[in-house]
Design a protein around this nucleic acid. Structure first.
Lengths: 210, 210
DNA sequence: ACAAAATAGTTGCAAATGCAACAAAAACTT
DNA sequence: AAGTTTTTGTTGCATTTGCAACTATTTTGT
């Protein structure tokens, strides 16, 4: 199996070849889309990064997902059960590709490159998302803050083939991503340093003996 | 969009029409598959129910996913980062459809019903899984045992359009599913009863004023 | 029908986590 | 370059959760 086709090239081609696809840019902090109604919306991040954020009734913020180049998101993937607030927020200047899921199959038998190609790649794209979500579930099911941190570091380390990792987000956001209290996480991070599991070098973290 | 095509009929047809598909039965407690190597394995549950289970280094059990009729699972969806033990265990007498993901595209241009149909349905099947996983993440990111319980009940309630719900698993397993300590969960369950959020009637739970 | 196993239910106590509040440092703005 | 905002880092204390251990009840297997 090959999940590693060139998703970037793919998105470039799409955005140029089909009039059912929209491309929009968003500045840091802007809301890309919110999850309220079922609009069949399917989005892909072409540039930048973004978070799917939830605020619960207590004002607790949770980063449900973190998206980087090539990731898919949108209401098509989500069923909202609660009345909490959900939205996707750009963390950097971002370029996003929008289309309706229904459009993939219902139109363009007239050989639009976009449609043929998307239909072919769709399983791979969604499968990538499944793998990301499973990785996330593995993290969230860890019982302690320590295990969540080490699990997160280990995922980054595996992804980049390096024991020296660069966090993709601020520590404040990491706490929201791991769904734990920030100060408790900071405490754990200090302990991990003191006990020699990790080392901080500038803005990077080095994983020591496991 | 229609995610609700007849997945059962679909699986029946497959199991009869293609020699690359295997169907096996498993008794309660038997291991259906384990997640160790990358074998491109794609499975679908035709009958029964099953759990994807992880045991960590402390012997803590976590139910990573719970599968019922129509759900897809298998290594194709999963990247194991840890050296923990992962396997799928039948919870009832179950019938499982097995095939290799690669087989979907690489063979049978000779019009095998299975292949044409599977290629068409694949995005929907995987999309269903994404939605399940997102629902699961929403639960796991809730901060307290109370919120996890209420969230779980609420999901079941929405699914069955009823305030009276039947748990899909034992309370012991529910604790493993919510990734919390069983006795702490029982305590919370008692408090929810005492505070009038829920009521137990036989093996059913009734959700009262929210 | 009986024994064995699994599940439900409970409790005291220890440990982990969350909350609130603050100071220092770093990163953005204009 | 100065002011503002965000992030990092820390602490004391309250609350929640986990752990261990045990009994009662229900389910399962033979």
């Amino acid at each position: 199996m090959n999940l590693d086709f060139d998703i970037n090239q793919f998105m470039e081609d799409f955005s140029k070849n089909c009039n059912k696809v929209q491309v929009k840019k968003f500045n840091k902090g802007e809301v890309i889309t919110n999850y309220i109604q079922k609009r069949n919306q399917f989005c892909m991040l072409m540039e930048g990064s973004a978070d799917l954020v939830r605020y619960d009734y207590n004002g607790n913020k949770t980063i449900i997902e973190h998206f980087t180049k090539g990731n898919a998101f949108g209401e098509i993937f989500y069923t909202i059960n609660t009345n909490n607030e959900f939205f996707v927020e750009a963390k950097k200047l971002s370029k996003v590709l929008f289309f309706k899921y229904d459009d993939i199959k219902t139109m363009c038998s007239k050989n639009c490159t976009f449609h043929r190609s998307l239909e072919e790649k769709l399983p791979e794209i969604i499968l990538n998302k499944v793998i990301d979500l499973n990785t996330r579930i593995e993290l969230l099911t860890k019982r302690t803050i320590r295990d969540k941190l080490l699990g997160y570091f280990s995922t980054l380390s595996t992804r980049t083939f390096s024991k020296t990792i660069t966090l993709e987000m601020s520590l404040t956001n990491l706490a929201d991503y791991l769904s734990v209290d920030r100060s408790a996480m900071m405490r754990e991070l200090r302990d991990l340093k003191e006990e020699g599991f990790i080392k901080k070098v500038g803005d990077k973290i080095v994983l020591l003996h496991k």
